[in-house]
Design a protein around this nucleic acid. Sequence first.
DNA 1: TTGTAAGCGTTATCAT
DNA 2: ATGATAACGCTTACAA
Lengths: 340, 340
Amino acid sequence: MAARIDDVARRAGVSTATVSRALRGLPSVAAATRTRVLQAAAELDYIASPSASSLASGHTRTIGLVTPSVSRWFHGHVIEGAERTLRAAGFDVLLHALMLDASMSRASIDPTVLRRRVDGVLVVGLPVSEEELAALEGLGVPLVFVGAGPPGHVRVHMDDVGAARMVVEELVARGHRRIGQVQGTPTHSVPWSPAVERAQGAEAGFAAADTVIDRDDRPVEHGDFSVEGGRAAAARLLDRDPGLTAVYAHSDEMAFGVLAELEDRGVRVPEDMSVVGIDGHDLGGLVGLATMAQDASGQGAVGATLVLEMLAGAAVGPDVLYPVTWVPRRSVAPVRTAAG
Amino acid sequence: MAARIDDVARRAGVSTATVSRALRGLPSVAAATRTRVLQAAAELDYIASPSASSLASGHTRTIGLVTPSVSRWFHGHVIEGAERTLRAAGFDVLLHALMLDASMSRASIDPTVLRRRVDGVLVVGLPVSEEELAALEGLGVPLVFVGAGPPGHVRVHMDDVGAARMVVEELVARGHRRIGQVQGTPTHSVPWSPAVERAQGAEAGFAAADTVIDRDDRPVEHGDFSVEGGRAAAARLLDRDPGLTAVYAHSDEMAFGVLAELEDRGVRVPEDMSVVGIDGHDLGGLVGLATMAQDASGQGAVGATLVLEMLAGAAVGPDVLYPVTWVPRRSVAPVRTAAG
DNA sequence: TTGTAAGCGTTATCAT
DNA sequence: ATGATAACGCTTACAA
C-alpha cells in the first residue's frame, strides 16, 4: 500500500536511480528533474524504507545512546541535548539503557544489539570496562564519550579534577578546616571516572591547604551518586566525626541526601554545617544547595555534534573540556567562630 | 568481514533457510541440526543484519518512544521502565523527543521518522492533537499511551480525576477552607490531558465541600508543570489572595516552585501554609512535600508490555488505571486556628 | 545528466 | 525437516 521508489519513478517519468539521487539531494540531478521527482514523491507521500536503504547503503542514520540511567539528572539532560541535535541532523536515536540491578552492579554493554544497527555511539556518563571498550571499538563506528571517557578517546566532559579542587578551596576560603566528603562510587573502577577524578581533585585541594588541615583529618565516605547513598554516607560521616563543619558531596544528588540526613538530625545548614555539591541540578536552588555547575544538555549536544563530524570524516580532537561555574547558595557559609 | 548467513550455512552444512529457522527458534528444525547451526553461528560470531531481516520480514523489532521530555521526572521514569521491558523482550527502543521550543509550544510529532521504522509506538505523557493522533494511527502499528491518552485508545495512566479529588479532600479534612491551586497548562488543550482531568478532580473535591467552601473562593493559577511555572503561579496566587491557608499544586515539580516562592517570602510551611503536590517525585521527601504518588516506571513497563501483547495479536483492554498512594509529609498540616 | 542492473543479507513460499 | 529461490526496496557502480 505504501508507495515505493518505482511508483515515484513511474510518476515522475524517470528511473529509480534518479529518484534516489534526487531525493537524497545528490548533485548530479538536473533542477527540473529534481523538482519533478520531489513533486511526485510528495503526491504519493513517499518515504524511503529505512531498512532497504540501510541494507543497500550500509549505514543506518541512527546513533546509539548507551547510558546507565535515564532518570538521573546528568543522564536525562545529556540524552535530551544529544537527541535534539541528532534529530535536527536527520539521525535517529537508539536508546540503550543499562540499568543497575539489585546488587548495584549493572549489566554489561551488549554490543550485539548495536552491531549493524548504528552509525555511531555516544556513551553517556558511564565508566566502561576494558572489555566493554574493546567491544564498543569493535563496532567499527565513531565513538564519543560524554561525561567521562577513557583518555585518548573522543570525549566531552567537565574538568572533574579542577572542579572538585575548586570546591575544596571555596570551603577552605570560608574557614572550614574539618571537611567530610561523600564521594561517588564508580561501578567499574577505572582511573578516569568522575568518581575517581573528583576524589583526586579534592585531594589536590586539601594538599594545597596542607598547612591548615591535618592530613589525617579528611574523613571520606561513599554514596553511589544517589540520594539514598548520600544520605547513608552522611550518617556514617556524622557518627564517626561529630566535629565536622562542612560536608562536600561529589554530586548534587548525593548532597540532597546529605541535607536530608542533616535535617533529620536537627543539624542546621549552614549554621552548624555547610554543604556543597557538584553538578548544578535543577532543584539545587530549591534547597539552597551551593554547587559547581556544569551544562549537561550542552555536553550532550556537543557530543552529538562530534559523532556527526566524525561520521563526516572530520578529524576531531580527543578532548572537549566543558567549563563549570561556581554557584554559591545558602548551604555554604563561613565557619562559625568558637565564640559564635 | 562480518559473517553472513551463508557463511554459517556452509559451516553447518545446511541451507541458509535452515540457518534462519534455527537461529530464530522456529519449530520445524531437528534438534541436532539446530545445535550444529548454533555452534557454527557462535564460532563465526554471527549476528543477523537487522536491516536485511527487517526488509525481508517487514518488521523491525523496534518500538518508538514519543515524549516531550526526557529530563522531567515522569517522562524519565516512564522511559526507563519501558526501555527495560522492551529490551528484555529483545526489542530496540527508538527515542523520539519533541522538545518545547522557546515559545513553550512544542514541535509536532513527525510521523515520517517513525514510518517503516517501528513495530509499535509508546506515547509518553503527551497530549496529542487530533491531527497527530491521526498521523500516529496512520502508522498502522500498535499504539499505547502512557500517562494520558485519548479515550478509546489503549492507555495506562493514573486516575487523575480521583487523585486530584482526594488531595482536596485531604486538605479539607484538615480544616483548610481557603485553598489556592496551581494547575498545569496543557500544550494541546485536549479534554483528557492530566492538566484538565486534575482540574476536574479538584473541582469535584470542592463540590463535595460546597457547604464549607465558598464557590467564589477557589483561586486558580497556571504553572506549566515546571518548577519555574509553579513558582510564578504561586507568586500570583499570594499577591491576589493573602488569606490562603493551603496551596495545591497539580504536580510535584510545580509544588517545588511553590515551596521556593513561599520560602522567599518568608511564609512558613506548614505553619502558615500547607502545600501538596501530585506525582511522588523522588526529591519530594527532601523538602517534606506531601503528595499523591504514582509509579511512573511501573507504568512505563506496563505500557511496554501492552504494545508487545498487541504485537503478539492479543486483544488488550483500552484502559489500565494505575493506583496512587497518599504520601503525607510535613508540608501539610491542619489549618491553624484563629487562636493559634 | 540519466538509465541499467547488480548487489545488499535476510525471510518466506513452495517443493521435496 | 530441509532446500531452492523469489521477493523485500533501495543504492551504486558502470554505461550511455
